[in-house]
Every structure is written in structure tokens, then in C-alpha cells.
């Protein structure tokens, strides 16, 4: 049995985290972490997206409604967007979304957006470990939250 499978089996926290990662930066960043054998928490399900600007705020909302305990969106650093300006739009939308879902009963700590470049494998590892810890502390999303 591989390490990952063991990890999944030992993982009794039942936390589900969805991460939307930009193809050009953060997905590469997570990949870099993987190829450098940096261990990542197994609670995270990664969805590759072309750009954070592609993220319709509906995506994270739907993820929460369908039972995700945390949603992380990550893309290129501002000014580094592959499509020049995608993440600038995303920044505005996601910032409003963060406070909005909090108002509707999904704690804003469950949601985050970050900038990770393809070379920052270590940064990705730290970030995702911290995020998973944060969600674990909050516990599974309440049934009525979803």
C-alpha cells in the first residue's frame, strides 16, 4: 500500500476540502511540492482551472452547499497572471464573497484565496497544511450550513 493510500485510510477527520488551482501557477506549485516529495494533507481535492478569473463565485458556493468543509482558491501572484488581469478580477469577487458567505452562515475562515507561483512548492505545502489545520479546528461544516 502506498503512503498516500495509508494516509487516506488513517485519515479519520472526515474533512473535505476543495482547492481550485490555477493551471499556470498554483497547480504547478502543488506539483512542484509533489515532485519535491513534500507531504501534503490528503483531505484536499484539487480542481484545476485555467485562471482564478475563471472562478465563478458560484463554484465555491456550490462546493459548500454540496458539503465541502473548506474551499481554497489559489492562483498567480497579482501582476503575474498568465492572462494579464484574471486574478485582479478574481481578487475583487472573492473578497466580497468571503464576507458574503460569512453573512449567510458559512464562516469566512472556511474560505480563502491565496497567490502561489509554480516555483513555490514549499510555500504551497505550508499554506495547505495551515489551511487544513484551520478547517480541522472548525470541524465539519454544520448540516444546516450546507
Amino acid at each position: 500500500m502506498s503512503d498516500i493510500q495509508k494516509d487516506i485510510q488513517n485519515n479519520d477527520s472526515n474533512i473535505k476540502i476543495i482547492a481550485f488551482l490555477c493551471n499556470w501557477c498554483s497547480y504547478g506549485g502543488a506539483d512542484t511540492a509533489g515532485t519535491s516529495r513534500l507531504k501534503q494533507p490528503s483531505e484536499v481535492r484539487i480542481i484545476r482551472i485555467p485562471c482564478t478569473g475563471r472562478v465563478n463565485p458560484l463554484f465555491p458556493m456550490k462546493a459548500f452547499i454540496d458539503g465541502a468543509d473548506g474551499v481554497l482558491i489559489s492562483g498567480c501572484h497579482p501582476n503575474d497572471c498568465h492572462y494579464i488581469e484574471g486574478n485582479f478580477y478574481a481578487r475583487r469577487r472573492l473578497e466580497v464573497l468571503k464576507y458574503f458567505i460569512d453573512f449567510m452562515g458559512i464562516e469566512k475562515e472556511r474560505f480563502d484565496y491565496q497567490w502561489v507561483s509554480a516555483s513555490e512548492g514549499q510555500r504551497w505545502q505550508q499554506l495547505i497544511i495551515d489551511f487544513v489545520e484551520r478547517i480541522k479546528k472548525l470541524g465539519p461544516i454544520g448540516k444546516c450550513e450546507t
Partner: peptide, 16 residues
């Protein structure tokens, strides 16, 4: 209830 809340959430956010 959850579906109705979800509807209002995305309707509202569409108006942000």
C-alpha cells in the same frame, strides 16, 4: 431549505 437558500445566495451575489 438548502436549495432555496442556495438560490437566493447566487441570485444575491449575481447582484453584487
Amino acid at each position: 431549505t438548502i436549495d432555496k437558500k442556495f438560490f437566493q445566495m447566487f441570485r444575491a451575489f449575481h447582484n453584487a
